[in-house]
């Protein structure tokens, strides 16, 4: 493909619009989307409802009460809404992407569609954007529902800065979904069997969700000397653990969420006493400072999404069309 890719004429995006519109319409009208939405509501509504119940009884003044709907884990149920999202979003994204390309192979539609005047670029990008916008619509709907429920049940309007923070959180959630969508798209390009592709995506998700934290801490312990002599040494080892954990998109997402929705967050690692000097405990950071704090995580998520999509793109370009 390299040779032709350099010299070929015509925009790579010819036909992107129709592919995107078809994918988007297909997703919205599919039974799978209904199932995913039910799943999201079941897993999202419960933490939100219980945290709202608890928040109504809070009497002390809290400047960011509205954001607590997202983050507070009620006693009755030890998961918060954002924690639920941390594992719902990958499942949704995988559900939307795992059969994107291989189902076209299996239904023998790929060669017919590619014999129309479009490049493969447009087909793959259209499929990715179709999935991403579907995901964005679903997450935005969910976000609005939570906001609405908060307004109704707390009887207190959110402040502007809370809306801004929650809006940034929505963007982060969509980017996180984009990473998993790109991963499932990659597997749908690699494997002809949709079942294998779904299994690999879910396997990778389980690996990052369950195994990776353990592996990361095991490796960190392996690096640690038998005796930690200074605070600097401790911090260096903690840093190794953090770097390893951040290979998981879930870690990047939860750090972003913590930074955005808990305005008191100043760092994700420990702070030395010297750094603590002058800090007012529990005082919130302004939004721009919080954004600077989570900027690396956010760029990491978006970069990961682009890298995985690029890998899928390269493999798809080299694939033979014939079934």
């Amino acid at each position: 493909m390299q040779r032709s890719a350099i010299r070929r004429e015509g925009s790579a995006f010819t036909g992107l619009g129709p592919v995107f519109m078809k994918e988007f319409a297909d997703h919205l009208s599919s039974a799978r989307m209904m199932v995913l939405m039910l799943f999201v509501i079941a897993f999202g509504a419960f933490p939100v409802a219980s945290s709202l119940q608890q928040l109504r009884t809070v009497t002390e003044s809290d400047a960011f009460l509205f954001l607590r709907i997202f983050t507070s884990a009620p006693d009755s149920l030890p998961i918060s809404f954002v924690f639920a999202l941390n594992f719902i979003i990958p499942i949704m994204a995988i559900g939307l992407g795992f059969d994107a390309v291989n189902s076209e192979f299996n239904h023998r539609t790929l060669s017919r569609v590619l014999s129309q005047p479009i490049y493969r670029d447009a087909l793959l990008l259209g499929k990715f954007l179709g999935g991403l916008v579907t995901l964005a619509v679903a997450l935005t709907a969910l976000w609005l529902i939570v906001f609405g429920a908060g307004l109704l049940l707390l009887g207190l309007p959110p402040r502007g800065v809370e809306v801004a923070r929650a809006g940034c959180f929505l963007v982060a959630a969509i980017a996180y979904g984009g990473v998993w969508l790109a991963i499932s798209l990659l597997f749908s390009v690699i494997f002809r069997s949709t079942a294998t592709s779904a299994l690999c995506s879910l396997g990778l998700w389980l690996f990052f969700f369950l195994l990776w934290p353990m592996i990361a801490s095991a490796i960190t312990i392996g690096f640690a000397p038998s005796q930690i002599r200074s605070a600097e040494e401790y911090l260096a080892i903690e840093q190794i653990g953090l770097v390893l954990a951040r290979f998981s998109p879930g870690t990047l997402f939860s750090e972003t969420v913590v930074g955005l929705l808990n305005p008191e967050t100043r760092t994700f690692a420990s702070m030395l006493p010297a750094q603590m000097r002058g800090v007012i405990q529990g005082a919130p950071l302004p939004l721009d400072q919080s954004l600077i704090l989570i900027w690396p995580q956010m760029t990491g998520l978006i970069a990961g999404m682009i890298v995985v999509f690029a890998a899928a793109y390269v493999i798809f370009q080299r694939e033979e069309v014939r079934a």
């Binding site: 032709s4 004429e9 005047p117």
Partner: peptide
Amino acid sequence: VRQPLEVKRRV
């Protein structure tokens, strides 16, 4: 090879 879109529009 170079103008696949033009070809595919007509074939």
